[in-house]
Design a protein around this nucleic acid. Structure first.
Lengths: 222, 222
DNA sequence: CAATTGACTCGTACAACGTACGATGCGATG
DNA sequence: CATCGCATCGTACGTTGTACGAGTCAATTG
């Protein structure tokens, strides 16, 4: 019966010999745990109760450090999106590709982030990335008047690509089914039926080729 | 007091003089009502109970016509995305712009759809649009080998643009705040701080300019 | 030392949700 | 009349986010 209440379970292992790896509740620790849990169980897998349990604390304790669940999402998102711009500026086009590749890769490493970002944009770490894009474009000689439009188009492109990729999930089965349905309806969709559009699973390659299109268009005309 | 139980409220106005505008429960009617409710109260505003009440039926009756709530989303999404390709093929670039403009406009007219589409792609009406893109590109002389990449890049672009636009919502306040925060942190984000990137609210114009970049890149090189 | 304060933790409780299940009513068919 | 399918719906359960207030403990103050 002892388990019934569970009650004081765990308690804080306060005092002397508490493992040092159980600090106390902290925004950072909450963020980190949330990221783990999101990675493991996906967007819907994160519940406040689960989060609390994973950290060995009571549910309501979280609310001392965090406004509400949305704030947890924000925290996790920004945690994951940290960016360290590395190389120097020389090949503007290569630099931009690097920013966007890294961006995309990060989001795909945590697929929930791609589904989340559209709803809560503009955490600090996003701004870092935008800033970097900005400098790259300027350095590349893109006309001042074009820079903003270029940034947004790049943003749109990554955003769309990752969101799409993440939503298709790793299961190629869905796409295969769709493509099959397409083939049946060959009369309705002659082009699509023939093109195997939905079967192509070279996501990275497709991403790069599309990005090249875009950069070709952005590159200063001479 | 009569309202207390509500109970048999409404009932089916079965029999002779029922208004013809209250058919019976129907997938189509459910879809339509869901769209209205989504338009009015947003993504989270749609609840099965609310939906049922809006149609004057019991909650569980819905489940006879619909698998679950997700199915309702699918239904509503595809309802909204219906597309009638109008004009003939002549100016491939103009045609593509038309497809994408219409696409974007439709989604922005129902902002929830932009947030939904990333999760549940490839309803039939989406395919119509993709097919249309496909023919336009081919007609425009884009190399066969480039068509798929081009389609996906266009898809990514619209998707990213609409999703972003929808998430910013009509409230410019958020962006203003962010831009202000940017100005304060001018040292961290010199370019962004100066560019008023976040203040620009000519969404349509920006969309078109970015799309031009992309199409410039896609256009067959000569 | 005792009293107080404020940072922090947590159990309980509630309202809202999606939906499983089974009961009910109905028109058509035997 | 009996039977059967389609269609409707009430009730009930489990799960969720979180409001509220009571609890703990270290540091501060008298």
């Amino acid at each position: 019966m002892a388990d019934k209440a569970g009650g004081q379970r765990g308690r804080r292992p306060q005092g002397q010999d508490a493992q040092p790896n159980e600090p106390t509740l902290t925004r950072e620790r909450i963020a980190a745990t949330a990221v783990n849990m999101l990675d493991a169980k996906g967007l819907d897998g994160l519940t406040m109760r689960g989060l609390a349990e994973a950290m060995g604390s009571g549910v309501m304790s979280l609310y001392w450090h965090v406004e509400n669940k949305e704030a947890v999402f924000d925290l996790a998102l920004d945690t994951v999106l940290e960016y360290s711009a590395p190389t120097s500026l020389q090949d503007w086009r290569g630099d931009i590709v690097h920013v966007l590749d890294d961006w995309r890769a990060t989001m795909l490493r945590h697929p929930w982030s791609a589904l989340l970002l559209p709803r809560r944009v503009l955490g600090p770490n996003i701004l870092v990335r935008l800033e970097r894009l900005s400098t790259c474009l300027s350095a590349g000689g893109v006309a001042e008047a074009d820079v903003n439009a270029a940034i947004w188009s790049l943003w749109n492109y990554v955003m769309g690509a990752t969101v799409t990729r993440a939503s298709f999930g790793p299961s190629d089965a869905d796409r295969a089914v769709s493509q099959e349905r397409l083939a049946e309806l060959g009369s309705l969709y002659p082009f699509l039926g023939r093109s195997r559009l939905l079967l192509d699973d070279d996501w990275d390659g497709t991403f790069r080729r599309g990005l090249d299109f875009l950069l070709d268009g952005i590159a200063p005309k001479r």
